[in-house]
Design a protein around this nucleic acid. Structure first.
Lengths: 197, 197, 197, 197
DNA sequence: CATGAATGAGAATTCATTCAT
DNA sequence: AATGAATGAATTCTCATTCAT
């Protein structure tokens, strides 16, 4: 009966936001961004169409929020103190982290790769911190391969990137019809690590 | 009305079809399938909206035709007598063919890969004969690795597929800002071949 | 709970109502009635959306209240004892009162006229008591011109009304870029009075 | 059976455009711009919602087209050779033209005045030729009154403008409930002309 | 064969109003 | 009394597809 406090409202809002984003992530990944109408998204999240706009000012803004949120989750693995500098562990650790992220946020990866491959999206991302991080990855790998004395470090970056991104694409194509089983994912990870030991 | 005229008509029709498909491929790749309206496609192909439907019964059918055509081009390399059985050359020959195709029709491949990775396009592919072909590749590679006594043939298929598809994705992302130079492409090819020698 | 507390509550309520109406009048005039959402109005008045409905049962009711309030202000000049009968002074006195009102509350009048001329507002006014008042003015002027033996009293009413309303419109259009100076206003007033001496 | 020619299409388009604009003008004037949905407009024009967008890219563009078209009609009276210079007839002729325009395009006037009084519209008009013309009117009148030796020419411009604009506002308020009869309009016109003889 | 006008279903978005707390 | 989350109807706009000529 007593009015809700500021804090109660904030908590409600935050949990609703999460609920919407989770529902939307699932749908974007399975049906594709373009095929999800706000109506569908809202009813899957169990709310009204109008309320969506209370939380996200547009469908695009919802996508952006999901991408950013997911990216933050993942970057926490590589830059836990948020100083913008990637922890330069051994390559093996790096690869393990990438695959751990893939395993634990499979839907997110599918959405993410799916989105960044769309024409016209790169231009949108280019200002975003996400993009900075991606460049940092390249730089980090390059330096690593140089330091280790690889004959053609850039070629190695290319190969490793292809192995990772290519696998992502395979995931997209497989999902959700036939999941690539976790052991296979594990073996794939080890296979790559073996190449660089 | 004479047979010859009849034939001329068919040739005109066929070349018009090609012209539409080329224009559409380019637009799908640069603007995204979902953002290309029939109107835009028609005007880029230099014909009227209505005429589009004379050549393709729907937007989806146009996309299907483009993909099938591209897929046929690829398949010609591996199944020249169209008997549905892939020539089981040595793996090295297979890989060389793939990269030769990439090199010789670089722009076409970039557009093509870019299109088939788009959401809304993947969903369409799944029911199509195209998809069968892709499974044949998998099967062929699988058999090859089994025959050669690889410990985990499926893992090898995964790895090789990722290396190829992942490279395609890198091409898309680089294009058109900075082309990956031919020598790098060559080196990458050799790098892969080395892995399987 | 004591009478005094009761009275305080009422005073608070009344002053809150005024505060809302003032904020709304300004917004209606500057942004247009149709473009002002309850949300915007509430936040400009410094209260919550829900509370608006505690004070005014609808957006339309808020508008009606604003107009009625403004209209009462005017009517006080001409019908100070609120008996519904306009004081039939000499016309000169009437005109002087109109312009005195304009001069003394210039900004208010500009906002007010600006609001009542808006589409969507006019339609609302037609059923309201306000409209009765306006007809009374017409009647009063008509009787005056008849009594004075003007050849076509209705034509005179039309002319005088146009001179007054038209000037209001000029004020709106000039505001806020360039104020019409007070002397000009004075001269205009005299010009009209001269016409009827 | 034979396909339509380019010219036939153009004629169809032009007549449809007129039909839509006429229907919309009537509705805008009677119901107010803000209260007319595209749906309503379309069904009053006897066409589908979608077709509206084939002819006008937005509701606002439709309004703009109507205003511009109407303004051109009216300006033809004052600048028949379209050289951007107003014919500087005697004042009497000018006033007669204004009232002729009001009489013959009554709905248009109502819409026009209604629109230019809306907050935020002036800013939109300011680049348009319409605005130039309106300034030219002021200048022309000012020069006229100066030449004729009026004591305070600017005051005269103000008075005449108020008489004209004020009458327009009265028209809006009267329309469509009770039309001001044509004879009254005629008398009003003569009344004004008498003032300046 | 060729055109583009016409349709209508459906998408994104806005906003007055209600209501639980 | 006060808040803002929640609703849903209405609105603007898009676009694949049909069809008369």
């Amino acid at each position: 009966m007593s009015p809700r406090t500021q804090k109660q409202f904030e908590e409600m809002r935050e949990s609703r936001r999460q609920q919407i984003m989770e529902a939307a992530l699932k749908m974007f990944a399975t049906e594709g961004y373009g095929h999800c109408s706000i109506s569908k998204l809202a009813s899957h999240a169990g709310i009204s169409k109008g309320l969506m706009y209370n939380y996200f000012e547009s469908k695009e803004a919802l996508l952006a929020a999901i991408i950013e949120h997911g990216m933050n989750d993942i970057m926490d693995l590589f830059d836990p103190d948020h100083d913008g500098i990637l922890e330069s562990d051994e390559l093996v650790v790096f690869i393990r982290k990438v695959f751990a992220a893939m395993r634990n946020h499979q839907e997110y990866w599918i959405l993410f790769i799916s989105v960044i491959l769309q024409p016209g999206v790169r231009e949108l991302l280019i200002d975003k911190p996400v993009f900075k991080y991606m460049e940092q990855f390249t730089t980090m790998l390059l330096e690593y391969f140089e330091k280790k004395g690889f004959e053609d470090p850039y070629l190695e970056v290319l190969t490793l990137s292809a192995l990772i991104e290519g696998f992502g694409v395979l995931l997209i194509y497989a999902y959700p019809t036939m999941q690539i089983p976790d052991e296979m994912l594990q073996k794939y990870e080890n296979r790559i690590i073996d190449m660089y030991k």
